[in-house]
Amino acid sequence: MALEDAQAVRAVADALSAAAGTYHEKWKAGIGDGSIDPADAMLHVGKEQALRQNAAQMYVQAAALAGQEVGETQAGLEGAIRDADQAIAKMKQAAAAIELIGDLVTLAAAITARKPRLALAAVKELRDDLKQVRPA
């Protein structure tokens, strides 16, 4: 079974590191109490170092997987941001269209009511809104 999740790989690395620490304590205690011959100490040091080296390699693998996961997450976020930007642009266009329609309705109402000042104000508002929609 391949470990593909950074957390799972780190958990294995933590377990190897803890095992190396326990092994270190046991062989040192064995030398101290005479159950392990001091001449065999180098054999135990080598085994402990192999455990620690395996743990270190697993930590490197976990870091690489975490970097991959962050990259995938970042790509997803960038896509979502692009989609949101497009949606916002469409909303701004719709808002501008609604504002232009409102200006036209105001102009029509002013003309129907025979209010030249209101009609002139509506024309100016319409002109300003058109400039915002289509900058010169």
Rank of each mutant, 00 (worst) to 15 (best):
Q7V: 10
L51D: 04
A95F: 08
A94T: 12
Y23I: 00
A109E: 13
P116M: 08
E99L: 11
V45H: 07
A108S: 06
G79D: 15
I98E: 13
D40A: 13
Y23N: 04
E48H: 08
A39H: 13
L65Y: 04
K47H: 12
P38F: 11
A84G: 06
M1D: 13
K28V: 10
R52S: 10
G76Q: 15
L118A: 13
L51M: 12
K90C: 02
Q74W: 14
I81A: 15
E25K: 03
A109I: 10
A56F: 03
T112F: 05
E125T: 09
Q61V: 08
I31E: 00
Q53G: 08
A13I: 04
D37V: 03
A6N: 12
A18L: 09
L130H: 00
R117F: 12
D85R: 12
L77I: 15
Q57G: 08
N54I: 05
A15Y: 04
I111G: 02
K90T: 04
A55R: 00
G79V: 14
L3P: 02
A20R: 01
A108N: 05
A95V: 12
G30R: 04
A15C: 05
A29P: 03
P38A: 11
A109P: 02
V12L: 12
S17E: 08
M42G: 11
A29H: 08
G46A: 13
E48L: 02
I98M: 14
Q61A: 10
A62L: 02
G71W: 04
A18R: 06
L126F: 09
G67H: 11
R114I: 05
D85E: 14
V12M: 10
K26D: 08
L65S: 01
I101E: 10
A80E: 15
W27M: 06
I36V: 09
K131E: 00
G32Q: 11
R114S: 11
A63Q: 06
A108V: 04
A136C: 01
T112M: 07
V12G: 02
D83K: 14
L3H: 07
